[in-house]
Write a protein that binds this DNA or RNA. Structure first.
Length: 270
DNA sequence: CCGCAAACCTGCACGC
DNA sequence: TGCGTGCAGGTTTGCG
């Protein structure tokens, strides 16, 4: 499920459970995710106190007083279940705190990952080195996009999915942000003018902020034993809405590019 | 650099 | 009811 807002919501949901808490037990039930979890994950986490939780792009970061940062990625189907009554299939990692809270990382497709990186090396950690700016950070500007997209003939849709250009957008929120800024997903990235890029940056902010806010308001749902945390699909304007009317009077269309679906309104997105 | 495909793996919706 | 097909929020790699 997770793009940036879902990871942010996840981290906010984990914070009250883990912040300043000591880890009492770690159970690796199925370590072979997309990358194998480190074999010594349990040893290195057990007895450690969590000092901070954060997020970079679509990765969640959990710092410990042992000098390690646990970095998780939820892939396509990952989620943390909080205080589950019982463990389910695909609960691959279970963490218990001394206070008696329990977290289970459930990931049916196992496209996710869990790594343990010395805090001092996190910035240089290979998956992070090439990441572009945070879409909600001060560095994500029309100027940045203008430079990053210069000369690129690939579609703006595909380029926004490129984590080197901006780190944290996925298929859903790229579609939504392009709709919000009325930019055609088919347009060559390098052809966009600065004013249109400024609109795009604003649209990205708008769409992500709204999704995070919606996530924040459902933290109670998130913390339910079933751990349900969905996208807030009711507020999608185009994603998953092929054939439905657009506010402009057009009809939401869909096409495949790079093996993925793009949803857009051909009438009002130019 | 571009566009595409495949790989990783499971679940679900759909049509027959 | 059961089976086959296609599709799904991500990332990486390789080919022409």
């Amino acid at each position: 499920m997770p793009e940036l807002p879902e990871v942010e919501t996840t981290v906010r949901g984990l914070r009250p459970v883990l912040q300043d808490q000591r880890i009492a037990r770690v159970q690796l039930r199925r370590p072979d995710l997309r990358r194998a979890m480190p074999q010594d994950l349990g040893q290195r986490l057990t007895g450690a106190r969590v000092t901070a939780l954060g997020r970079r792009a679509k990765y969640g970061l959990i710092d410990t007083d042992r000098g390690d940062t646990m970095i998780f990625h939820l892939g396509m189907s990952g989620r943390w279940r909080v205080d589950p009554a019982e463990l389910l299939p695909h609960d691959h990692l279970v963490i218990e705190t001394e206070a008696g809270r329990r977290l289970a990382l459930n990931d049916a497709r196992r496209f996710g990952s869990v790594d343990l990186v010395p805090m001092a090396e996190v910035e240089q950690w290979a998956p992070f080195r090439a990441l572009g700016p945070e879409p909600l950070g001060a560095q994500f500007t029309a100027d940045h996009l203008k430079a990053a997209l210069a000369g690129r003939t690939a579609s703006i849709k595909l380029l926004l999915l490129d984590q080197k250009i901006v780190a944290g957008l996925g298929n859903i929120y790229v579609c939504e942000a392009l709709y919000e800024s009325r930019i055609s997903p088919r347009r060559a990235g390098g052809s966009l003018t600065r004013p249109r890029l400024a609109r795009l940056v604003e649209a990205v902010h708008l769409v992500l902020d709204a999704a995070i806010e919606a996530g924040g308001s459902t933290l109670r749902d998130y913390a339910r034993p079933d751990g349900e945390l969905g996208y807030f699909s009711k507020q999608f304007k185009v994603y998953g809405r092929e054939g439905q009317p657009c506010e402009c009077g057009g009809t939401v269309a869909r096409y495949a590019e790079g093996g993925r679906s793009t949803f857009w309104c051909p009438k009002c997105q130019r």
